[in-house]
């Protein structure tokens, strides 16, 4: 399929994927939307929410709809890097004894790192190369991971005892941090009903890996006006407290700002968002839509911000209001 057809059919495919996910995932439209934007743009996602909101279920459904090899890793404090990357095991062959690489659960297209903050930093670090390079190195040998490749991690914000907060470097490798909200009364009602009655219709695969890669390629072609791109870059720069041009709140309450990777992620996600709405250009709205998920895990409050009870969400909202289009 040529790029023109890819682009014109993008919105339709996107809608079909969403529709299929909605069969098994009640509500959480915004979470699903962000998840799809990141997956199509080729980014990793950190889902944060209290237990029982369907984070793991959502990723399972996504793997089903996208028809991608899926692996789930439950992160625990005793999980070792070799447990997720894989290891060389001694095997007996006709030629004699030898080592054979036994791939770990990272060797899948869609990896669910459940409760990632429960693993030790050593194991969390093992994810770094996989997330960024889409490759792992074992015993000096680098092995490519299958494409497309995504790490979708979840973490629980309430049970912080015995957890290892993710280091900034690792957080930056996630394209989005998506907050999973508690469902509304109506959604909760539907969820409860779904558990006692079998709807009979589960989600089906809509596209495969090839189509997903084609969609990603189509999204990369979406043009961006200079003014829109400048707006996105200004947003990112305005998160830097060391810049004198940054807003007063940024300078006062933030410890550090977003990395250039955030700007890349913001524009990539905005491109997908534009195509998903049937547009062939990125709008200011697309940037504003993607910005909170893109920036919230890349910013950190300083002592003043913490002591005055500021939150990152509020600061990002302020930034979006203040930064002129």
């Amino acid at each position: 399929m040529d790029i023109r057809t890819e682009m014109t059919s993008f919105a339709d495919r996107f809608a079909r994927i969403r529709g299929e996910i909605a069969k098994e995932m009640i509500g959480q439209e915004d979470v699903v939307e962000h998840l799809l934007l990141a997956v199509i743009a080729g980014g990793n996602v950190l889902l944060e929410g209290v237990p029982g909101l369907g984070k793991t279920h959502l990723i399972r459904v996504l793997s089903k709809v996208l028809d991608l090899p899926f692996q789930r890793i439950q992160f625990t404090p005793d999980l070792m890097p070799a447990d997720i990357i894989g290891t060389n095991i001694l095997v007996r062959t006709e030629e004699g004894n030898g080592f054979r690489f036994q791939p770990g659960p990272l060797f899948a297209s869609l990896v669910l790192a459940d409760e990632i903050n429960r693993a030790t930093p050593k194991t969390q670090a093992a994810l770094l190369e996989a997330m960024q390079e889409h490759a792992v190195t074992v015993s000096g040998e680098t092995r490519k991971l299958p494409e497309p490749y995504f790490v979708l991690a979840t973490q629980n914000p309430v049970e912080q005892e015995g957890t290892y907060p993710l280091p900034e470097a690792q957080l930056d490798r996630f394209m989005f941090k998506v907050l999973v909200p508690f469902p509304s009364l109506e959604e909760l009602d539907r969820i409860v009903n779904l558990t006692i009655r079998d709807s009979g219709e589960g989600a089906k695969a809509v596209i495969g890996a090839e189509e997903l890669l084609a969609m990603r390629e189509a999204a990369r072609q979406v043009p961006i006006a200079k003014s829109v791109q400048e707006y996105a870059l200004r947003l990112v720069l305005d998160t830097h407290p060391e810049r004198t041009e940054s807003p007063e709140e940024t300078q006062k309450y933030l410890r550090f700002g977003a990395s250039p990777r955030a700007a890349q992620a913001l524009l990539s996600a905005a491109r997908v968002k534009a195509l998903s709405e049937g547009r062939f250009n990125v709008s200011f709205e697309d940037i504003r839509y993607a910005a909170p998920a893109c920036l919230r895990h890349r910013l950190a409050l300083n002592f003043d911000g913490l002591s005055e009870g500021k939150d990152i969400e509020g600061l990002i909202s302020g930034l979006l209001e203040r930064t002129a289009c």
Partner: peptide
């Protein structure tokens, strides 16, 4: 939604 301003900058060379 920024269609016009983006189109102004576009050359029309690529399919997108």
């Amino acid at each position: 939604r920024e269609r016009a301003i983006t189109a102004l900058e576009a050359t029309g060379d690529s399919p997108a």
